[in-house]
Structure formats: structure tokens, C-alpha cells
Design a protein around this nucleic acid. Structure first.
Lengths: 184, 184
DNA sequence: CAAAGCATGTAAGCAGTTACATGATTGT
DNA sequence: ACAATCATGTAACTGCTTACATGCTTTG
């Protein structure tokens, strides 16, 4: 349970076309969904079948026709039920950590290199998140104070998470210096 | 790319049956795979077709026959290539954070309640991780010092991650007290 | 006597991805 | 001229999950 609710969430703000929703998903980092249209268009069809959204087709000249989706009362109920449902733990799968389980198969130098590569990735990610946060605060829409506070918290949390991972990696690097060469 | 490599990783230690692998996956928290046999048995069939493992059938009396899987040289090469491949960012999908995007649809009290529920989840998870770490250090197999150090680091990292999330949640709770009731 | 463990597997389905297909319009 | 944007959609695939099926043995 899944992207359907996030779509309903967006539609609770105002009606959107599939294309616009796709962009929303693609733009927002915290939303981890890649914004691929196959899934979004498919979900919209299902949401419509279930009566959670309505469709209005608008013809345009010089542009393809749009399908504008609007949330229904049943959709709002479904959305609210989701918001009140029992929270789930964050799912985190860190393939790098899993790979470390077999670090013994690597020489010290090889291990060092992958650790550094992971570090560079994390650094880039932290920079990107910071940039997104900076730009996001300029184009903030009309949000209530509470809403703004929450969004900022979540964004900060994301950055802190990556920063913490990076700090952890640095300490790992330091620690590894005490094991000069595992397989001589 | 995926559980196949983790299976090869386990097999690099020693031969295993599908059933034993299933238990390995189910036991280890950091491995996020649920240890469901459909996937493991299926992967083993494929790994065999690709020549990355060999199968030996051992008949037992009073027990079903076992299929013992052994990694091949090609399998070891594949495993090593994976270990040296470009690292990936951790995938984290936190549905609770996403839900917070629509917190405006909830009253202060409702929001408080879900935040508390998420906090209880996190607390339980931290306790469970600590317990796993404690018990794990007792039954540690014959690992090199470097390997032990790495495993401990990864486990600590996991716990710190949940603790950080919990600390963040507490600060969020504090902050929310400044917005007594968004929709009066 | 029931439940858990040993040991294999299959079937059905969900969530999500990549890549393809069409076709006009606008920007570099 | 080429690429990007607007706007819809389909097909094929991967990875993973739940649930089912079988059948014998050990433990509580």
C-alpha cells in the first residue's frame, strides 16, 4: 500500500492530470517513486474503477487532450483512513552494508576503494538534498505554519540521515586502518 | 541486483541447502529479505542454470532428501565482481514521512496519536536490534578481527539509525506543541 | 495430540521499472 | 536541426510476497 494513496494525497490539494502527477513524483526526492508513467496511469485507472477519483477530459488545440482527475468523497475517506492507519517502520535496504558482510573476500586496498566510492556517493547526495531544500524554501506555496514546519523537519531529517551515514563511514575508514592487510 | 548475490555470498562460506539459506535470511535483520522460500528456491534454480552453483542430492532416512548447493569458480567470480561494483545509495522509503505530507488533513490530536504510534514502533525496533546485537556477540563464529569489526560497525549503524529517527521524532513532537490546533 | 521443525516446491499476484509508441509544439 | 515539453498509453519484465501443497519426525 502505496503510490495510490500518495496520488490521492496530491489530488486532495487540487485536480491534476496524470502528466502533472508524474512530474510531482519525479521532482520530489522524499517520494522515492521514480515518477514512471506506467504505474501512475495504471493506478489512476484503478482509482477510477473504485470510484475514488473522477475523470474530466479537456480538449486543447495545439496540445493533446488532458484527462483531469478529481478526488471524490470516497477518495477523501480512503485517504484519511490511510493517514490514520497504524504506521510502518521505515524500509531501508542498504546494499553496501550487505556487501560489507563479505568484505573478507577483498584485499585492504580493494575494500578501501569501494568505501571511498560509497563515500563520494553519499557526499553528492548530501549536496543534492541541501540544494533541493534551499530551492524548495523559495518556491514554497501557501502552506500553514504547521505544515511548513513539518515539511522542513522531514527534509532536515533526510539530510541528517545521509550525513550520519557519512560520519559512520568515516569512522569505519579510520577503524579499518587498524587492520593493515587481512589476507597477506 | 539482489538476493542472488547474497546467496552466493553465503555459499562462499560453505555449501548450504535451500532450507538453511532460508533460515539465514530469516534470522539476519540487516538482510531485509524476508527469507521466503519461493524466491530462494527460484534463485537457486537460476543460479544452477547459469553454472554459478552445483547441486548434490543427499538422501536421508527419516528426513526429506536435501539438495546441497556449492558455489563454483564462476560463482566466485560473479560474487567478487559484485563486491567490486559501483556502490549504490541506500534505498529508504519511509511511508510515515510521506504521510506527514498530508498532516494538514488531521487534527492536532489525531496527528499526535500517529506520531506516538510511530514512536512506539521505533522504540520496539531499537530494543530488538540491541537484543540481536547482544545475542549475536555470544554466538560469533570464527571471524577475523577485521570481519568482526566490520560486522559490529554495521550493526551499530543500524541501531544508531533508528535511534536518530526516534530523537528526530521527539523533536518533532516538541515542535508541534507550538501549533495548538491547525483547523479549529 | 498438537505444534514446530525438516525439506522440498508451485501458483497467483503486487509493486515497480524500462523501454517502446505516437504526434504536435516550442525552445536552443 | 535537434532536443525538450506536453500528453497519453502499452508490453514485457524483475523482484518480492503470500499462500498453498506434501509428508515425515521430533518436541511440548
Amino acid at each position: 500500500m502505496s503510490i495510490r494513496h500518495a496520488i490521492l494525497g496530491f489530488l486532495s490539494w487540487k485536480p491534476f492530470t496524470g502528466y502533472e502527477l508524474k512530474k510531482r513524483f519525479a521532482d520530489s526526492l522524499s517520494f522515492h517513486w521514480s515518477g514512471n508513467n506506467a504505474q501512475i496511469y495504471g493506478s489512476l485507472v484503478k482509482l477510477h474503477e473504485e470510484g475514488l477519483v473522477t475523470i474530466e477530459v479537456r480538449q486543447q488545440d495545439k496540445r493533446p487532450a488532458q484527462k483531469i482527475y478529481t478526488i471524490t468523497e470516497a477518495g477523501r475517506r480512503e485517504l484519511k483512513a490511510w493517514l490514520l492507519a497504524e504506521p510502518e517502520l521505515p524500509e531501508l535496504r542498504n546494499l553496501f552494508h550487505i556487501r560489507l558482510a563479505w568484505a573478507e573476500l577483498l584485499g585492504s586496498r580493494e575494500l578501501e576503494l569501494t568505501v571511498e566510492a560509497y563515500g563520494r556517493l553519499l557526499e553528492a547526495q548530501v549536496l543534492m538534498c541541501r540544494e533541493t531544500r534551499r530551492r524548495g524554501s523559495e518556491e514554497t506555496p501557501n502552506r500553514s505554519p504547521r505544515e511548513s514546519f513539518i515539511w522542513k523537519s522531514v527534509e532536515d531529517n533526510r539530510i541528517e540521515g545521509f550525513e550520519r551515514e557519512l560520519a559512520w563511514l568515516r569512522s569505519l575508514e579510520e577503524g579499518l586502518k587498524n587492520f593493515p592487510e587481512a589476507r597477506p
